[in-house]
Computed example of a mutant assay.
Amino acid sequence: MGSVTSLFVRKMVAGAEPGIDGAAYLRSVGIDPDGQWDPKQMISDEAYYDLLERMGEEIDITDLPLRVGDSMRCDEYGALGLAWKAAPTLRGSYMRVERFARIWTSIVAYEIEPRDGGILWIEHRAGERRLGMRLSVEADMASAVSISCQVSPVPFQPDAVYFKHKAPATLQHHEAYFGCPVHFNCEHDALLISNEALDQPNKLGDEGITQFLMPHLEGELKGLRDEPSLGDRTKEAIAKALSEGPPKMEDIARGLGFSARSFHRRLADHGLSFQMLAEETRRELAEGLLRDQQYSLADIAFLTGFSEQSSFTRAFKRWVGHTPASYRKTAAGL
């Protein structure tokens, strides 16, 4: 499972207003609508795609990713945006995003592929080509054009745009925005950019800023760690909720930034079920607490989500074949 910056989520929601209840959409994925815009706050890709698809059930979203992409500004990308502006040429800007995009998202990788007279700027994104993903890809391509226009000293437009997914009902919005041929059902999601455009000196190119920023970005990239698996994150959330009783899948899903339907599907994709993870979590927590003599059996029953000690005893014997009391004695070497 991947993650995206909440900046993209907020931008999409803002672009869809007033046709939707934006505050409700943000809260549904764990974002405080009245809070500060924090690009480092991340949500899962599945939650993001679900949100976009739910918006599509309320309003016409054909041109939404284009409007959102057009609204993106270099400064909103923090140090990466500053590195984009400070690169000596637009080619350098694209090379920096190819290198450091992982700081902003774990679901996308970029590749620069040389072509006669230019490059193909390719976006790689794994997963089912669902509507939410299609909208996200289109917004990414539109934003690349927007921030290219912001740093180029001359009007910028790609030579062609390519999308892997099928075309929307009308192409007028896409062709008007990109100002070039837009192709669908292609091998890649990509922009074709000429060498002439790439070799233009950026308006704000600054070698001094570049020398300062590059070690900082390399440090951020090095500091990234692989995210815990969905199963591990689910078990952690279940463990935290157990003292309130057996947690409901819907509540855990919401806390992890999923809809219940998407959460169930993602678990199934990994060969997991919520019930299985809940049982494993309760058993593992009970075993750990039983090895600690400071907790009574009644305490452990409560902490593992049982309303009665007798229910805990029956469940534990089913899990490991011993009563909690005999397990504790064995663990203590008695």
Rank of each mutant, 00 (worst) to 15 (best):
A331R: 10
H188W: 10
S311D: 14
H322P: 00
M72H: 04
D269C: 08
R318H: 10
V145S: 05
E113W: 10
E138C: 09
L204M: 15
R134C: 13
P88N: 05
A268R: 15
I122Q: 01
F302C: 12
C186V: 05
F100V: 09
G132R: 07
G2H: 15
F263K: 00
K166R: 15
R54P: 00
H165Y: 03
L303R: 09
A16V: 01
R54T: 02
R91Q: 13
S152N: 09
E207Y: 10
E46L: 05
L272F: 04
V29K: 01
Y295E: 07
K240Y: 07
N185R: 12
K203A: 12
G223V: 01
E46Q: 13
R99I: 02
T281Y: 03
F212G: 14
L82Q: 13
L230D: 04
R99L: 10
D269L: 11
S273T: 15
A79V: 11
G271T: 02
G69P: 03
G179F: 01
P228R: 06
P181M: 15
A109R: 12
V29Q: 00
P168D: 00
A167Q: 13
L64V: 02
Q275F: 15
A286H: 04
R261C: 06
E287W: 05
K40N: 15
F316H: 02
D63H: 13
E53H: 08
L64D: 03
